[in-house]
Nucleic acid binder design. Sequence first.
DNA 1: GATGAATGAGCCTTCATTCAT
DNA 2: TATGAATGAAGGCTCATTCAT
Lengths: 199, 199, 199, 199
Amino acid sequence: MSRVSESGRRDQILRATCEVIADQGFRSLRVSDVAKRIGTATGTVHYYFPTKRDLLHAAFEHNFSRSLERRRQIIDAEDDPLTRLRALVESYLPEGEETERAWRVWAELWIEALHEPELQVINDAVYGEWRAMMAGLIRECQEQGLVRQGDAVIHTNLLIGAVDGLAIQVILGSRSMTIDRMRQVCTTYLDSLVEDVHV
Amino acid sequence: MSRVSESGRRDQILRATCEVIADQGFRSLRVSDVAKRIGTATGTVHYYFPTKRDLLHAAFEHNFSRSLERRRQIIDAEDDPLTRLRALVESYLPEGEETERAWRVWAELWIEALHEPELQVINDAVYGEWRAMMAGLIRECQEQGLVRQGDAVIHTNLLIGAVDGLAIQVILGSRSMTIDRMRQVCTTYLDSLVEDVHV
Amino acid sequence: MSRVSESGRRDQILRATCEVIADQGFRSLRVSDVAKRIGTATGTVHYYFPTKRDLLHAAFEHNFSRSLERRRQIIDAEDDPLTRLRALVESYLPEGEETERAWRVWAELWIEALHEPELQVINDAVYGEWRAMMAGLIRECQEQGLVRQGDAVIHTNLLIGAVDGLAIQVILGSRSMTIDRMRQVCTTYLDSLVEDVHV
Amino acid sequence: MSRVSESGRRDQILRATCEVIADQGFRSLRVSDVAKRIGTATGTVHYYFPTKRDLLHAAFEHNFSRSLERRRQIIDAEDDPLTRLRALVESYLPEGEETERAWRVWAELWIEALHEPELQVINDAVYGEWRAMMAGLIRECQEQGLVRQGDAVIHTNLLIGAVDGLAIQVILGSRSMTIDRMRQVCTTYLDSLVEDVHV
DNA sequence: GATGAATGAGCCTTCATTCAT
DNA sequence: TATGAATGAAGGCTCATTCAT
């Protein structure tokens, strides 16, 4: 039970850290902000994470594993692969508080990782998973004749790249790239993979 | 002459600032780093840019206008629009010191802009230009029958999104997204716009 | 039995404290270092010594009484007083792990005592004992004609002063004051007390 | 002129640091105590000495060179060597605010040096000087027949050791070792070096 | 125009101490 | 008797900013 409570505390801190990153950004996150958000002392945060750096790295991993968990159920659903592919892409659109928050944390990680090899490892791991999931679904679709032939990896890379790039603009509140327009772009691309199947 | 030298000093500071942002990141940029890089005192930097914020915003605009200048000559070249479209995309691949540096500054701006509306305005302006250039070229191609019909804006958005998303991975040194693979993805997409033209 | 074990725990803590003082110094001693050394929690240390100050003062007294115990057997030996005098001085040379450790603790106490009257009392008590032992032996020697006449207290003070001052240099690892040279200085002085006896 | 004022600031900080060390001890010295003593901000102290450690080491060297300067004039006086020898020893008795303060700083250095090799180097240098001065004078005395023959280095070591050891007790306010008693001990020893000259 | 000494608010981190178990 | 999670005061250090020169 004490282990549960400890683990609870740790998770609580990590969740709060992700919230602060999403709200204020990595740059202006103070350890005391995290503490304040869960109504504790900074000492408590340091009790679990010796340094701010440790805290932030752990928060990124936490954000990552929660993201993956949420997608796992989409991948493992009973639907046909094309439906699941569309659902997977849809689940990445930065809509809704939770997803947008995850994207913001994610974007902050990229920039931090530019100067922290340790975070690049996390980034690589995440992309590995994300790419494998999507390429797997595309291949399943191809096997079932739902998607036209062609290099699944190239389709995947284009799609993931576009999702990343467009999501940034959406969370930046860009006037010309709204969530609806992003959805339209992604859907159109997916449609284009399907439309020529019978040709 | 004194105005020239003043302007020289200002530019020198902005160039140095971009270099520091690219090298160490926004988060760990100190005014004294910029000063050191051009062999002057922090007081001098503050003489031109009262606050750090002023300095950084000016640096982003500087990075932006230099980027645009470099593309202008591609757009205005004598070649046919498809050649220019391919050249434009190619020019955005993060290869070479200058382009990679520009991308790094750019990525740092995104993250900073998440919490600074004033920077979002810059982002919007840049994307407006970038989108207009590309959509214009695609439309020219379509008019000349070099590219298949379809919503040019959607093609543009997908392509710009992909370039952004992939470029991030490339500058992050991702194992699975190298500059060559990025080029392949972009080229394949451009080819796909072309290939069905005569169908 | 519980009292024995309690007393055992207390002693164990005090011994560990002396070791930490000797190893890292008073200044950088943390309660957690002491706890770690005996494989317990800081709470346990505080159970026996409410404050760090209590712990340190007790440790000094512990160091002191162990020191005295070790000399008692020299003083109470069966040998003639001159032999015992030489043995006593010899026993104070900072040679061997235990003696050197005691000296380090001792030196740390001096400095701490500069700002803690309570520790000055301990210092005075220790010096009282040390001076009484030595002066007593010198007087015994004089009575037996083994040492020339003269103020025994002055001889004692000079000798004790020299032992203290030289020991510091030895434990500091001074190049010009090694344990051998210290021994030579002390022996020479003792010899000088003896040599003119028959004159 | 600006260099003079800078050097003035540095010296002012070092002097204040020595005062704080003497008053409160090394252990409880806070950078803000030093700043407060000269009516400046902590930032100013750090402007001259990046870390607390730098400050303290510089303060020790400062204490050391001031000590040496003061003795230099004794050594270089016109008097006969015996007079100068007596004056040198007298000058080391911890009497008077300045000398006592120097001794306190000195004692704090010893303890700190136990765990800082860099300070041991300073200690060695100081002892080298101190020993050379004294041994030189003793030899001069011997050459002029003012002091009896014998190993000057051993006399020196005994005397320096005694001065150190006794000074500690004096500054500790020991009941049994007052400044007068210390003077008596030292004088008696010096007398003993002289008394047998004509034998 | 340019400098750099000086400032001081702010933040991370440490660690003795407490207390519920 | 013993634990260790939690606390929070304290202090070293950073760095943007100011200002006299």
